[in-house]
């Protein structure tokens, strides 16, 4: 399944942060509507930077595999504290 990217239009405030951050130019800016549009979803690598950055949380992605992050191991964190 390929990645799907959608923008909730009513939430978009037209800041263009998604346009600037996307490394593969998935978004374009619609001047007339003052909103971002998804125009090249085929090139999305699912880096999720747009999702994290959008101040309105207007971007939604589906059909990607989320990387499993390391667990929070409190015991180990305690041992590592002195290095930080």
């Amino acid at each position: 399944m390929s990645v799907q990217v959608t923008i909730r239009e009513e939430a978009c405030r037209g800041c263009q942060m998604c346009v600037d951050v996307c490394p593969t130019k998935v978004f374009t800016y619609d001047d007339a509507a003052a909103k971002a549009r998804v125009s090249g979803v085929e090139d999305c690598i699912a880096c999720l930077s747009c999702v994290y950055l959008c101040p309105s949380m207007a971007i939604n992605e589906a059909g990607y595999t989320a990387v499993k992050n390391f667990y929070r191991d409190l015991d180990f964190s305690r041992r590592m504290e002195r290095f930080l």
């Binding site: 490394p23 593969t24 690598i45 699912a46 880096c47 999720l48 930077s49 999702v51 994290y52 990607y64 989320a66 990387v67």
Partner: peptide
Amino acid sequence: VTHAGQNACL
């Protein structure tokens, strides 16, 4: 590195 993302890097 072209882009360092939260879930993938290009």
